[in-house]
Nucleic acid binder design. Structure first.
Lengths: 146, 146
DNA sequence: CGAAGTAGGACTATATTACTCCTATACAGC
DNA sequence: GCTGTATAGGAGTAATATAGTCCTACTTCG
């Protein structure tokens, strides 16, 4: 199983694309969808998620589109992941304390809490700026070609 | 999303149970299922997975059952995860190189490969012996009670 | 032989993820 | 103010993955 979903990959590609236009024009969903090989309708949904998370600014109406809300070096991989697929957690009890009635006494939970923290910190440490430069459309979970 | 599945939790509980009987009698699936609150049929499936992975030894026939194939301190959480839910991977391209045509030049892949490795090492470093002692049936992803 | 066990294929049900459709709303340019 | 091109977002469908069941072997002890 893969932890990062296709969703996240699309979002990441879109964000990298926007990073390339940072400080310049807004980019329309239609353009993002064409350049990054995402269906227009689905791309629109993903942009909504990114917008709801405050990662992008939107300009409505004709000649509208999206732009990064913050400079690339201030947008982390974790931000993007959280925006499109929710928090990544090793197990449910980190997301929802009610998921496990023995949470408080659980030895396993204690054992892996450290790892959980490390993962989040790592993802938070990787920013858009780091892969925005030379690769405009690298991606993680591209749909497999047939 | 949770990385560890319910499947894995069941398996973990079963393994902890078996660890409690290490060196003694085999434990029948019927008993495991009752003690760890897993449906008998499903428990049987999970035991098959653990057996196929070589983590448990099976004794067929009447008075048969399962026992750990190795001492608890030599069975890691990663072993169990791999047996029941397959390898944990940050993204598809670590599992299947064909999943992404740009794998070789992908900056993102390079960035998170280190994290991927760290996660595996951490999980491999946690063994059954560490939580087998005082908690016979702790679990991670118990189905939520209503 | 029969009871109690594992082995395993095939199937069903449920949940999650991916994706589409349709309508509303905003804004620029004519 | 109309029209074309945008985003906003609810609602629904399709595909896939996970969880769980059913049934029929085969194995061994008593």
């Amino acid at each position: 199983m893969s932890i990062l979903r296709r969703n996240t990959d699309y979002a990441l590609r879109a964000m990298v694309n926007l990073a390339g236009h940072y400080g310049g024009d807004v980019v329309a969903t239609r353009q993002l969808s064409a350049e990054e090989d995402i269906s227009y309708q689905y791309a629109a949904k993903i942009m909504q998620l990114l917008h709801a998370a405050g990662l992008v600014k939107s300009t409505m109406g004709s000649h509208g589109g999206f732009s990064l809300a913050r400079p690339p070096q201030e947008v982390s991989l974790l931000d993007i992941i959280k925006a499109v697929q929710g928090a990544v957690s090793l197990n449910d009890c980190f997301l929802d304390a009610d998921a496990c009635p023995r949470r408080s006494t659980c030895v396993i939970s204690a054992k892996i809490a450290g790892l959980q923290e490390y993962i989040e910190k790592s993802l938070a440490g990787i920013t858009l700026a780091e892969f925005a430069t030379d690769s405009m459309s690298e991606h993680v979970n591209a749909p497999k070609e047939k």
